[in-house]
Amino acid sequence: MHHNRGPATPTVLRRSNGRYVPVEAAVDPVELAFEVALVKLDASDLIVVGDSIVQRGLLTITEIDEIAASYPPRIRAAVRRINGFAESGTETLVRLWLEEMRIPFVQQFMFRDSQRADFLLGRGLILEVDSVAHHASREQQQKDYNRDQYLRGLGYVVFRVTYDDVMRNWKFASEQLMLIIQRGEHLKIPAFRRGAR
Rank of each mutant, 00 (worst) to 15 (best):
1 M>F: 05
4 N>M: 13
6 G>T: 07
7 P>Y: 06
8 A>V: 11
9 T>Q: 14
14 R>C: 11
18 G>V: 04
20 Y>S: 13
20 Y>D: 12
22 P>Q: 00
25 A>C: 06
27 V>W: 10
27 V>I: 10
29 P>I: 07
30 V>N: 11
30 V>H: 04
30 V>L: 15
32 L>A: 08
34 F>N: 03
35 E>F: 02
37 A>K: 07
37 A>G: 13
38 L>C: 10
39 V>W: 04
42 D>G: 07
42 D>Q: 15
44 S>T: 13
46 L>Y: 13
46 L>F: 09
47 I>H: 14
47 I>P: 07
49 V>G: 07
50 G>E: 09
53 I>A: 05
54 V>F: 13
56 R>G: 13
58 L>I: 10
60 T>M: 15
60 T>L: 13
61 I>H: 11
62 T>L: 11
63 E>S: 14
65 D>I: 04
69 A>L: 06
69 A>K: 15
69 A>F: 02
70 S>K: 14
75 I>L: 15
77 A>W: 00
78 A>Y: 12
78 A>C: 11
80 R>E: 04
81 R>A: 08
81 R>Q: 15
82 I>K: 08
84 G>C: 06
84 G>I: 01
85 F>A: 15
86 A>Y: 14
87 E>Y: 13
87 E>I: 08
88 S>R: 07
91 E>Q: 03
92 T>L: 03
94 V>Y: 01
97 W>P: 09
99 E>P: 01
100 E>W: 10
100 E>C: 04
101 M>F: 12
101 M>K: 14
101 M>R: 14
102 R>L: 07
102 R>V: 02
103 I>H: 06
105 F>D: 02
111 F>K: 04
113 D>H: 11
113 D>V: 10
114 S>V: 09
115 Q>S: 09
116 R>Y: 14
117 A>K: 11
119 F>M: 03
122 G>P: 04
126 I>S: 08
127 L>D: 00
128 E>V: 00
130 D>H: 11
131 S>G: 12
133 A>V: 07
134 H>T: 03
135 H>E: 01
135 H>L: 01
139 E>F: 06
142 Q>D: 12
146 N>D: 12
148 D>H: 08
148 D>F: 05
150 Y>M: 05
152 R>W: 02
153 G>D: 08
154 L>E: 04
155 G>T: 07
157 V>K: 06
157 V>D: 07
158 V>F: 12
158 V>K: 07
160 R>M: 00
160 R>W: 01
161 V>P: 02
161 V>A: 02
162 T>D: 02
162 T>R: 01
162 T>G: 01
166 V>K: 00
169 N>E: 09
172 F>I: 02
173 A>F: 03
173 A>Q: 06
175 E>P: 05
175 E>K: 10
175 E>R: 12
177 L>H: 01
178 M>W: 00
178 M>P: 04
179 L>V: 02
181 I>Y: 02
183 R>P: 03
183 R>T: 11
183 R>L: 08
184 G>D: 05
185 E>Q: 14
189 I>Q: 09
190 P>Q: 00
191 A>S: 13
193 R>M: 15
193 R>A: 13
197 R>P: 04
197 R>A: 14
